[in-house]
Simulated scan of single mutants.
Amino acid sequence: MQRTTDGWATAGPGLDERATGPLVRLGLLRAAPCEDQAGLPAKAGRTAAWAVQLTDDGWDALLYAQVRAAPPTAEAPSPGLQQVGLRRSELDTLRRFLALRGRLRHAPAPGLESAVDAARFNAASNRWVVYVSGEQMESMARAFFLERLGGSAAPANRFARVYGVSYEPPPHDAGATATCG
């Protein structure tokens, strides 16, 4: 592939109509019009059978792919915070729990919502990573407890097994519920 000064890439090894056609159809590349292609041999120094140019979407796709492929910056958590790796379904459970924050009798711990919003995917562990305090860990355990009651016990079980935190409802006095006669 050889580039010209006006942004066209001319045919070379691996750059032909068959290879770039799908990208042209997606709108990521633009094929050179016949009149432009006729003038390319003089600029490229050889015959150009095919020439393409990145579109704005093509540039953006390359930039996005570069950022997406870059490993997330390893920020050290603030003192007192613990790193927690969550499966996608567990993150979804926390989001449902946080969506109820104004209606729950036991509100989520302060800062849990911002911690969940800041979750970053770690491809190496295939987990969403959040940094939370002990109080936020307890609140997460409560969310997984509620999920256990209405859906799946897997998040609560895994959280207790991996992080040693589980939510147990406070014991109630059985005598207080007896009928008065």
Results as ranks from 00 to 15, higher is better:
residue 90 E to S: 11
residue 90 E to I: 05
residue 90 E to Y: 00
residue 90 E to L: 06
residue 90 E to C: 03
residue 90 E to N: 08
residue 90 E to Q: 12
residue 90 E to F: 00
residue 91 L to K: 05
residue 91 L to W: 00
residue 91 L to A: 04
residue 91 L to F: 02
residue 91 L to M: 01
residue 92 D to S: 09
residue 92 D to Y: 00
residue 92 D to K: 01
residue 92 D to R: 05
residue 93 T to Q: 03
residue 93 T to M: 02
residue 94 L to W: 01
residue 94 L to F: 05
residue 94 L to T: 11
residue 94 L to R: 03
residue 94 L to Y: 02
residue 95 R to I: 08
residue 95 R to T: 14
residue 95 R to S: 09
residue 95 R to A: 11
residue 95 R to C: 09
residue 96 R to P: 06
residue 96 R to T: 09
residue 97 F to V: 04
residue 97 F to Q: 07
residue 97 F to S: 06
residue 97 F to T: 03
residue 97 F to A: 01
residue 98 L to P: 12
residue 98 L to M: 08
residue 98 L to Y: 07
residue 98 L to F: 05
residue 99 A to E: 13
residue 99 A to V: 08
residue 99 A to C: 11
residue 99 A to F: 07
residue 100 L to K: 14
residue 100 L to A: 14
residue 100 L to W: 10
residue 100 L to N: 13
residue 101 R to K: 15
residue 101 R to L: 06
residue 101 R to W: 09
residue 101 R to I: 11
residue 101 R to Q: 15
residue 102 G to T: 10
residue 102 G to V: 07
residue 102 G to A: 11
residue 103 R to Q: 13
residue 103 R to A: 13
residue 103 R to C: 11
residue 103 R to F: 07
residue 103 R to S: 15
residue 104 L to A: 08
residue 104 L to H: 01
residue 104 L to M: 10
residue 105 R to K: 12
residue 105 R to W: 00
residue 105 R to Q: 13
residue 106 H to Q: 14
residue 106 H to A: 14
residue 106 H to K: 12
residue 106 H to N: 11
residue 106 H to L: 14
residue 106 H to T: 15
residue 107 A to N: 00
residue 107 A to Q: 10
residue 107 A to F: 00
residue 107 A to M: 02
residue 108 P to C: 08
residue 108 P to Y: 00
residue 109 A to I: 05
residue 109 A to C: 08
residue 109 A to R: 03
residue 109 A to V: 07
residue 109 A to S: 14
residue 109 A to G: 08
residue 110 P to H: 01
residue 110 P to F: 00
residue 110 P to G: 10
residue 110 P to A: 10
residue 110 P to R: 06
residue 110 P to D: 12
residue 110 P to E: 11
residue 111 G to E: 07
residue 111 G to A: 07
residue 111 G to W: 01
residue 112 L to T: 05
residue 112 L to E: 04
residue 112 L to A: 06
residue 112 L to G: 03
residue 112 L to K: 00
residue 112 L to W: 02
residue 112 L to C: 02
residue 113 E to K: 07
residue 113 E to A: 11
residue 113 E to R: 12
residue 113 E to C: 05
residue 114 S to I: 05
residue 114 S to L: 09
residue 114 S to A: 13
residue 116 V to P: 11
residue 116 V to F: 01
residue 116 V to G: 08
residue 116 V to W: 02
residue 117 D to C: 10
residue 117 D to L: 10
residue 117 D to G: 13
residue 117 D to H: 12
residue 117 D to R: 14
residue 118 A to M: 05
residue 118 A to E: 11
residue 118 A to D: 14
residue 118 A to V: 06
residue 118 A to Y: 00
residue 118 A to N: 10
residue 119 A to Y: 02
residue 119 A to E: 02
residue 119 A to F: 03
residue 120 R to M: 08
residue 121 F to V: 12
residue 121 F to A: 14
residue 121 F to Y: 15
residue 122 N to M: 08
residue 122 N to K: 08
residue 122 N to F: 10
residue 122 N to I: 12
residue 122 N to E: 15
residue 122 N to L: 14
residue 122 N to T: 14
residue 122 N to G: 13
